[in-house]
Design a protein around this nucleic acid. Structure first.
Lengths: 343, 343
DNA sequence: GTTAGCACTCAATTGTTTCGAGTGCTAATT
DNA sequence: AATTAGCACTCGAAACAATTGAGTGCTAAC
């Protein structure tokens, strides 16, 4: 257990290093208002903190920098949430106040604003639309081999996928299946699609089509191919202005990661509810091992529906990042709630 | 006018510098097989070429590097197209041989393969679908204020846009307009949409709706808002492995450009038919001033429908890049032709 | 016209020195 | 017993000099 003074010293060092990116020396610490003891005392404390693993030296006679364990302790026990400025709060709130026609646009916009405010990279995983209803389903055959399925939800989300029409499905069956789907599936909440198809649609297909199996296959191709990810990223280049990324190789590997949804999306998807901080090596992706990822989820009612994250150097302004994410996720959840109950 | 020997020297220097990224000295040139005269002679020629502006020195006793004018001359008068390897040709051809359900996927795939082959950044501006027909138009009202328009072309391209429904448009007019549009516009070639609306649709709207103006406004909102750009970019990080981009600031500004479609798309859109090479300062975008952009167009029949481009350092492998672009654009045009006439 | 020869240039590398911010330890002070 | 002053020591960073070598331009010989 750390003494109060050790706590104070650790806090000052982390705060200073977050600001300046330079190792912090005892003399500089002693100059701070909050510090009332001499450099020598601080040196002793620092030596202890280093022994305990909270601090590191870059070389034998340098000042100290926080270790990952130090950041972890800071985040868990020391840091207090930052009070955001009115302006910052306003900006975040405004990203919700625009007339939201499409959820997509809100997401993109939010990502943009958060990356501007924090100067870190923002990743938003769009909502899993549990409660949205299928406003309309359209299957449009393009020719004999292929067709396009278009799903429109009542919240303005449009999704389309092309797929191959099963061979040997005859023309009349195709038409019938398409008609049945188009007619029957409108207005069905997405989560119930499975069940609804089981109970209502299957029976119709059996009744009206010649080759039930082929028709059913068509249906599955149209509705249940690939789960689309909806990841919005903004401020990718922000991370370039951080001094820890002066090295082109690091930049390259990090960018390659950020470019590929397939690698990032699963990480965000697997998040538990609430706010999580992954410091350095704690990240599951190796290329992020000198970054910190802060994630938080947002929800609709009791359902967690999406994730938002900030990616920056381990020397991140944790207090600010956390405050901003908290504010956003609260606002987002609230807005979703309002939006989904209003009409 | 350059002598043959000057031509040869210039060619050797450009080729060597493209390969090594190092200033080329007279001794090294003399060692090449194609060179049968001494370093001293070469030095004289190089001095002349420098006076003429085709070569530069990085400092007073360094070897020479090509100037932008030198590259320009090389590209215009010296370079001969590179014969591609069978493997390279195969890879490009294969990107067309997959069963093309969606044009989008072909584009994305092509961009990927070209960036792999060249190690430069590939930019593809998708086809302006002159000849495609509207397979289906759907306007789906979400609520009283907003609706979504979905356009599906017969080539599987899906486009959607949300828009606000004009206020005070009464319910019955809305329904009627939507019905008329949905019914009448299917199968109409995109280029004729304007005309078709003038001749066929306007008259129907006038006849069946109460407030023609509002309905007509609705139609315009649905069909003619923002022209969506369809830009596919691949291999953005390739450029990071070029030694000329060791500097983080340059990287940053270039990446910021590449992130924003709004800045890139117009450049590609404005291209004249055929192959164009923009070396360094010739680029319209300042941040690209130490890059070369090679663009070429592809076409359907006589109509130029899209553009593809490679972005790399000025020290680019011009011969290879040009050969690859030529091959691709030929294949693409051919494929489009086949595809649009076959059914 | 070509080339050998030579003095000259300059970036890059290496080694040396100096500087200063910082440490750890010990002894004096509170 | 805790704190602090004092001091020797460490080490990176910056400044400077010396060395090296790849390259040039020029002149004179071939």
């Amino acid at each position: 257990m750390l003494t109060n003074r050790q706590l104070l010293v650790l806090k000052v060092i982390v705060d200073d290093f977050i600001e300046t990116a330079q190792p912090v020396g005892s003399r500089n610490i002693a100059k701070k208002e909050s510090i009332s003891f001499s450099p020598a005392t601080i040196r002793n404390e620092m030596a202890d903190l280093e022994d305990l693993g909270y601090l590191e030296k870059t070389h034998s006679s340098s000042g100290r920098i926080p270790s990952e364990k130090g950041y972890r302790y800071y985040v868990d026990h020391i840091m207090s949430p930052l009070k955001l400025s009115k302006q910052e709060i306003n900006q975040i709130q405004q990203s919700f106040s625009d007339r939201m026609i499409e959820l997509e646009r809100v997401m993109q916009n939010s990502a943009h604003i958060l990356s501007e405010l924090t100067r870190y990279t923002t990743l938003v995983l769009g909502p899993q639309v549990y409660e949205t209803k299928l406003k309309q389903l359209q299957i449009v055959p393009l020719n004999n081999q292929s067709a396009i399925a278009i799903l429109i939800t009542d919240k303005g989300h449009v999704e389309h996928r092309s797929f191959a029409i099963p061979e040997e499905l005859d023309q009349s069956d195709l038409e019938k299946t398409v008609n049945i789907l188009n007619e029957k599936l409108s207005g069905v909440p997405i989560v119930y699609l499975d069940r609804f198809i089981e109970t209502e649609v299957k029976y119709l297909l059996k009744k009206y089509t010649n080759d039930f199996h082929k028709s059913y296959q068509l249906l599955n191709q149209a509705l249940f191919t690939e789960q689309p990810t909806n990841l919005y990223v903004s401020g990718k280049t922000n991370i370039l202005s951080q001094p820890e990324f002066a090295d082109v190789d690091k930049i390259r590997s990090l960018f390659d990661i950020m470019e590929s949804e397939e690698q990032i999306a699963p990480v965000l998807k697997s998040e538990d509810e609430g706010l999580h901080i992954y410091i350095g090596q704690e990240n599951k992706i190796e290329e992020m091992s000198n970054c910190t990822l802060i994630t938080t989820t947002y929800s609709l009612g009791d359902n967690q529906v999406g994730t938002i994250a900030l990616l920056g150097p381990t020397r991140m302004d944790y207090a600010k990042a956390v405050s901003i994410l908290d504010l956003w996720s609260g606002q987002m959840s609230q807005t979703l709630q309002k939006w989904f109950t209003e009409q």
